[in-house]
Design a protein around this nucleic acid. Structure first.
Lengths: 167, 167
DNA sequence: TGAAATTAATTAGGAAGCTAACTATAATCT
DNA sequence: AGATTATAGTTAGCTTCCTAATTAATTTCA
């Protein structure tokens, strides 16, 4: 949400600090900047993927399927691994199936379950998208030194341990 | 997208590395972990706000309005500061107006322009939400030492300078 | 001054996320 | 075995985000 270019000025900060004495300005700025940089990068990734008729959700389903031995999984397993609800996964698979990037079959072991399979067109789509994706990620992350990269992971792990502070 | 708990194992990594030689595994993991931790925190913030009938987009509009001298701004300025499209801002303001947290008036200087004003109910909503928000942000970010906090800002600035790698 | 270009906001239509409710199948437990 | 419970997937309806097209008002400039 926060645009980096207009962080609040001293006068505004005082207004908020007076009304809300629990505010810790430096830490709020760290938090908001973290969310904003991540959002910008996420939007950038979506713009790249959109040039190939994908967005993160659908692209990640293809990646997860390629990870499987037989390029096959079920909606609920995909939902869990992608970190989205099953309902959302139904919608993502619908779109991918429409574009013929995956196919759906009923499992004959358990007739409640569907099997989603990466098609050859889906694999071709990944082959089209992934090399450039990897090059760009490398270019992005090499802005950090090895030490900064290590420090980043350490920081992310600490923040991740606090992930439930908002619950 | 990536669930931290199921980072790909060595076998899968090799499959991807063989097919996509440009992949730099460590840096890809840093990148995906960064996005995932940010997504988890963002979702956490939304869960907190949802308990007060808000989500980040609408909440941020209220914060931006409170920053103004007269608690007033225009949709386009709000859109720019919040980093969303004007169309999105129209929708956010619609919802806030429905809940009587903001009011809309036509500007009499420029009749194309609307003025959006934080209502007293909107200010009350902020007073209800912000103190606990600040306490939780502090609790979250104090997981980092002062040095780690500084390092995080330095890293975020470097990543932000690369924000156009995906364009 | 009057046509053209610009600007502000909205509408229309679509994607991706959510929860809650529903259907169908499978598993469990008297 | 039959009733209950649990699981897999989908549907319905909502929010928030987008782009492109539209409407209305203002500004520019020939």
């Amino acid at each position: 949400m926060l645009e980096l270019k207009d962080l609040p000025d001293a006068h505004i900060l005082k207004k908020f600090a007076d009304r809300y004495p629990d505010a810790d300005i430096d830490r709020v700025i760290q938090f908001l900047t973290f969310l904003r940089v991540a959002t910008d990068l996420s939007n950038g990734l979506d713009r790249y993927l959109a040039a190939h008729a994908l967005l993160q959700g659908r692209w990640w389903v293809l990646v997860l399927l390629m990870r499987e031995e037989d390029s096959c999984s079920s909606p609920s397993r995909l939902a869990e691994k992608a970190g989205v609800s099953r309902a959302t996964m139904t919608g993502l698979i619908d779109g991918l199936q429409r574009d013929k990037l995956v196919s759906r079959m009923v499992s004959f072991k358990d007739r409640r379950q569907m099997l989603v399979k990466l098609t050859s067109k889906g694999q071709a789509k990944l082959d089209e998208v992934m090399p450039e994706y990897y090059r760009r990620v490398r270019q992005l992350m090499t802005a950090l030194s090895d030490e900064e990269g290590d420090m980043l992971m350490q920081i992310l792990m600490k923040l991740n341990q606090q992930a439930q502070v908002f619950d």
